[in-house]
Amino acid sequence: MKAFEVVTEPIDPQAYADLVLRPEAGAVTLFTGHVREWTKGVRTLYLAYEAYVPMAEKKLAQIGREIEEKWPGAQVAIAHRIGELQISDIAVVIAVSSPHRKAAYEANEYAIERIKEIVPIWKKEIWEDGEEWIGDQKKKPEGGNQ
């Protein structure tokens, strides 16, 4: 396994927590994002995720570097699953370790916000009566070196 990866198999969150755990770390935050059944009153049957895998892994690693700059001493591992995912499956896991808890909490939230901005991964919601690629959940960043 890699610290920043796109995977097709079910994610074991503990593996990523273990990857960032080290003697200097007094805190590890482990976020798991799951497939939600109901969104704004519409029932999702399952999700299909697609990625531009090599670029997505580069962008995940970039988020890791951004975090290490913003929160010195923090260490990050992120995995995102693609393919067909069922309700409650883990779509994404973010593990952050840091000497103290505040940085681990803050950096973990920063990571998921950045994933939704810059990482080329797309989600299609499949409902009982249709399906749609989801986009623009956050503001669209300007072009250029993000």
Binding site: G33, Y52, M55, A56, V92, I115, K116
Partner: peptide, 10 residues
């Protein structure tokens, strides 16, 4: 070159 529609990971 890749066309990247608005992303929706997470």
């Amino acid at each position: 070159a890749a066309f990247i529609p608005p992303v929706s990971g997470g």
